[in-house]
Amino acid sequence: MGGTWDPISLPVRPGLYINFVEAAAAQIKGGARGVVALPLFEYEGTAIAGQFYTVEKEIEAIQLFGADAVEPISLVLQGGAKEVLVYTVPAIAGDTVSAAEYAGIRDVFSTRQFNVFVYPELLSADERLAAQHWCKDSREDEGKHFIAVFGGSLTDDSSIDTGNQRSIDLADDYVVNLVTGAVINGGTYSSASYAPYIAGLIAGTAINKSITYSPVRANDVNKRLKNSEINRSLQQGSLVLVHDGEKVKVEQGLVTSGRKIRAIRARQAIATDIPKAAAESYIGKLDNNADGQAALIAAVKAYLERLELNNVLTDIAVTLDPERKSEGDTVYLLIGFTEIDSMERILLTIKV
């Protein structure tokens, strides 16, 4: 158990709770964490409704869900994810998935571990917002850290302002909004239908790497943008695909808050890994005295130093929180670090 904590309302359940405290003036500019969660609404084959399946290869997906149902799963795997956590949604009464049914889908995924979440199809604006709130609540109330990826319809993609407004509406450190779709072998994909590929790309990229300028599997984008439109989209936290004359690539790896996906994923890794390690090796096993506290600090530092060696972060500091007394069964740690960014802007001054 973990999550954020409030100094005036301490957690009840045993666990190690992390509170990321950002300095007001600061601006936060291993291995692949590769599990993408995806609910599947239409399927056949051997899969049973209301079950979870872990898929690593397309051939497995075809056997489980049928050839007509596997395209979003295939896109996730082509993006580079290690595996897809698929939930077979029970048959829906009528043609439209209700808000209660979407809420039920989110609830069952809340009991599973994954790194990126994506729907295989277009959502209404209300359901996108509900999913964004779920992502935020999972982080703040459940200590569960993942990125959610969204997109829009072909009609939405025809107007970059529509896509950018979606980024504004979904602004959050843990949300990615794709505003351009793709053309693959003559077939046109909206940003919503291509979002599973981006989810796979994010999950399959090591946390010490950026997806900026990463080539994607596509022949073209469904709408080529002008330079001014690309700039405006980036400023509003949108994820943009561009055709550079040779290939289609991600212009810049951003979440809708405008921060870098690389930095956010480093934070998610720390917020996930430290509580897990503490639960396995330290909670209930160390005395809350000077020796036990020193052992805990050393363990946390060792983990962060490993990330430092892999160019995930730097400037590590781990101490007891000087503003709160660690006593009884409670330990307050103060952890500081700086995420390492990728080189994304090279500015040349040439004197002749």
Score class of each variant (00 low, 15 high):
N231I: 13
N231H: 13
L234G: 06
L234I: 12
Q236Y: 08
G237K: 04
G237L: 00
S238C: 07
L239I: 01
L241I: 03
L241A: 02
L241D: 00
L241Y: 08
L241E: 00
V242K: 08
H243C: 01
D244G: 06
G245A: 05
E246M: 13
E246T: 15
K247I: 12
V248I: 06
V248A: 00
V250C: 05
Q252G: 07
Q252M: 10
Q252W: 02
L254W: 02
L254K: 02
V255E: 09
T256G: 03
T256P: 04
G258L: 03
R259M: 12
K260F: 11
I261Q: 02
R262A: 10
A263S: 15
I264L: 11
A269K: 11
A269H: 13
I270L: 06
I270W: 03
A271C: 13
T272W: 03
T272F: 09
P275C: 01
A278C: 01
A279Y: 08
A279E: 12
S281P: 00
S281G: 10
Y282P: 06
G284K: 00
K285R: 11
K285Y: 07
L286P: 02
N288S: 09
N289R: 07
N289H: 12
D291R: 15
G292M: 03
Q293Y: 08
A294K: 14
I297W: 05
I297V: 13
A298S: 14
A299E: 09
A299L: 04
A302T: 15
Y303Q: 07
E305V: 11
